[in-house]
């Protein structure tokens, strides 16, 4: 399997605060990567750099073999990269179905019946069908998180970036979400998932990276990383229940 995403010495700082410190790593096609680290470690900034909402000060980013460092966010999405936002960003005045349709028509470039089919399929898979005609602005936090996932899927991505999508869910909801994401993965979509709910993460990913102060401080098999005393002690707290 080839490389889908590659970061080469990507750096970004706000004054003295370094959110990405010469990060170099890559993701293989079809891989599911988990990202953990304390709050403020630079996890969401990493997503912003990858998806183009934030520009690196130095370094290059490659997606599917192309240098996308200077591409705007919209172009990266059309090239097959979709994300969910940690704080949901719905199109509040539009219905749930229309939110999905924006993603299918713009991100996936689908039209007419095909766009409709993509949306209905994704809404069914993400459990949002009963809310299809509701205004997105009227949704609960939980439903908004599902809408984030649904919209990202409607762009038919090769790479899906999930930002704390399981936060605040009950165990049952979390279980069904994990199942949904596993199904997505089974269709060949690569995943990078930032998550504090570690047991949900471990049920899906096959590789884990730990980020702090914008640096990768660990990278490897999930079980090995979680067993590492250093990770538990410094970055998750000694008594972290994982």
């Amino acid at each position: 399997m080839g490389e889908l995403l590659k970061l080469e010495a990507v750096r970004r700082a706000y004054g003295a605060v370094v959110v990405a410190d010469a990060q170099s790593w890559s993701l293989a096609e079809g891989e599911a990567l988990g990202v953990i680290g304390p709050n403020g470690a630079g996890k969401t900034s990493m997503f912003n750099l990858i998806t183009g909402t934030l520009n690196p000060q130095s370094g290059r980013i490659y997606f599917a073999g192309q240098d996308i460092t200077d591409w705007p966010a919209a172009r990266r999405c059309r090239a097959g990269m979709a994300r969910s936002f940690q704080v949901p960003q719905p199109f509040g005045g539009m219905t749930v179905y229309e939110n999905a349709l924006v993603a299918a028509t713009q991100g996936a470039g689908a039209r007419g019946a095909r766009a409709e089919a993509i949306c209905l399929d994704v809404l069914a898979r993400t459990g949002l069908m009963p809310k299809a005609n509701a205004r997105a602005g009227s949704l609960t936090l939980l439903e908004r998180k599902r809408l984030e996932l649904a919209r990202a899927l409607c762009t038919q991505p090769r790479l899906l970036l999930l930002d704390e999508i399981a936060g605040g869910l009950t165990d049952g909801e979390c279980h069904s979400l994990v199942q949904t994401i596993r199904d997505v993965r089974a269709t060949g979509v690569s995943i990078i998932w930032i998550e504090h709910v570690v047991h949900a993460l471990l049920a899906v990913v096959d590789r884990l990276i730990v980020v702090d102060f914008g640096r990768l401080i660990a990278d490897g098999a999930p079980q090995a990383i979680m067993a590492s005393r250093e990770v538990r002690e410094i970055y998750l707290g000694l008594d972290a229940d994982v």
């Binding site: 998806t51 909402t53 705007p72 966010a73 919209a74 172009r75 999405c77 059309r78 979709a82 994300r83 936002f85 960003q89 719905p90 199109f91 924006v102 993603a103 713009q106 991100g107 996936a108 470039g109 919209r151 762009t155």
Partner: peptide, 8 residues
Amino acid sequence: LAARSLGI
């Protein structure tokens, strides 16, 4: 922000 991220 969302519009940009969805390919618009």
